[in-house]
Design a protein around this nucleic acid. Structure first.
Lengths: 145, 145
DNA sequence: TCGATAGTTGACAAACGTGGTCAGGATTGA
DNA sequence: TCAATCCTGACCACGTTTGTCAACTATCGA
C-alpha cells in the first residue's frame, strides 16, 4: 500500500470537489490548493489525469473550474487510486515473467493477487460521499472542544 | 500493492527454503537462482536483508547456505514483505504532513490506513508452508496432464 | 596447513519513477 | 478586447530500484 503523493493529492482534491457537489458550480484549482496546501502547478496535471479518467469534468474560461462527473456517492477511493497509480498495479511485473518457468513464482503471483484484491475491495468500499461526510462530522466535533 | 522485484525475489527464495525445510540442511544461493531464474549477485543482498530481519539463518563456509530460522508454518508473506519493503509502508508520507492542517487529509489518512491494513491481513494469512504445499500440489497435478 | 566453497560487506552505476516547475496556448465570460 | 482559467508538453532535480563487481572472511575436508 505504498501511496504516491500524486494519489494523495488527487484524493484530497476529489474530496474537496465532493464537498462542493451540492453547490453545482465549478471549483477552481487555486481554491483547492489554498484550502489544502497542495502545490498548484502540480495539481493542474493531477486534475487533468482525473479528467482523462472520466472522474471529473472541467469548465474552461473565466468562472471555470472542476466538478465531479458523477454524484460523490458513486465514486470511490478505488476509482481515484486506479486513475492515478494506474491499473498496472495489481499485477506483479517481474513475477509474470518468471511465472511461466517457475511454479513457485506462479503460486506466489496468486497470493500477491489476493492481497491486492483485499486492498482494492477496501478502497472500493469508501465513497467520496463517505469522506465528505466524515469531514463534516469532524468539523462539527470541533465546536465541542 | 505495488511489489518491488526485490520483494518478489525474497518471497521466491523464502518459499524455496520452505520446500527444503524438512531436509534440515543449508540451501546454497546458487541452487535457488538456478531453480528460479533469479540474478545471483542480487539475491545475495536480498538474503542478507532477510537474515538481518531474523527470517533466515546462514551457515558460512563449504557446505554452507541458508535455512529458515523458524518452521515455515510460522512465517508469513507479510513477514517477507515487511522485511524488504520496510515497515514505513503503511504510513502515508505526505498525508502525515498535511493531516495536521487539513481535515480532509486527516480523514483520508484513516481510509488509506484501512486499505493498508486489509492488505497486511491478507498477506499475514498466508504462511510459507501454505505456499510450499501449493507448489507441491501444482507439481502433482502436472502428472495428470 | 592449504585450497575450495560460500556467505559478508561496501562501493558503484545505470535506469527509472517521483515530484515538481515553467512557458505558452486555447477557451470562455464580461 | 481583456482577464481568468484550464490545457499541454517540455523540462529537470532527486531519490529509489535493480543490479554488478571486487575484496574479505569463515568453514570444511584432505
Amino acid at each position: 500500500m505504498r501511496l504516491s503523493a500524486k494519489t494523495e493529492y488527487a484524493a484530497i482534491a476529489a474530496v474537496e470537489l465532493a464537498r462542493h457537489w451540492e453547490a453545482d458550480e465549478p471549483v477552481r484549482i487555486r481554491s483547492i490548493c489554498k484550502a489544502q496546501g497542495v502545490p498548484e502547478r502540480f495539481l493542474v496535471h493531477i486534475l487533468l489525469e482525473l479528467k482523462n479518467a472520466g472522474i471529473v469534468t472541467s469548465t474552461r474560461g473565466a468562472g471555470g473550474g472542476y466538478q465531479l462527473s458523477r454524484p460523490p456517492r458513486e465514486l470511490t477511493l478505488e476509482d481515484i487510486h486506479r486513475a492515478i497509480q494506474g491499473p498496472g498495479d495489481g499485477a506483479a511485473p517481474v513475477t509474470t515473467d518468471l511465472a511461466s518457468r517457475s511454479r513457485v513464482a506462479a503460486v506466489l503471483a496468486g497470493a500477491w493477487g489476493d492481497a491486492a484484491h483485499a486492498e482494492t475491495e477496501s478502497l472500493r468500499s469508501i465513497t467520496l460521499a463517505d469522506l465528505a461526510d466524515r469531514c463534516r462530522s469532524a468539523s462539527e466535533a470541533m465546536y465541542y472542544i
